[in-house]
């Protein structure tokens, strides 16, 4: 049996990202499903992602410098 065929032969467990009703529809059909409230960082805004990345790098440097003391 191919890997794909064996996959569909198993009981399906679903982790849903995005629209919560997708998970709810599956649950109503007896499929085990959990919904994860994941969103892209900064809603996908590249400028804000870059600013947050600068803060993260800076804080890494601060922690390293403090640790070196």
């Amino acid at each position: 049996m191919s890997k794909l065929a064996s996959f569909f032969g198993q009981k399906v467990k679903v982790i849903n990202l995005g629209i919560p009703s997708f998970a709810e529809d599956l649950r109503q059909q007896g499929v085990e499903a959990i919904h994860t409230e994941w969103r892209p960082p900064a809603g996908g805004n590249k400028k804000i992602q870059a600013l947050l990345a600068r803060v993260e790098v800076w804080q890494g440097q601060v922690k390293a410098a403090k640790g070196a003391r």
Partner: peptide, 15 residues
């Protein structure tokens, strides 16, 4: 909040 973040980075982050 985005403008505040930008101002914060300008003020504090020198990297």
């Amino acid at each position: 909040f985005e403008d505040a973040l930008e101002a914060y980075v300008e003020l504090y982050c020198q990297n």
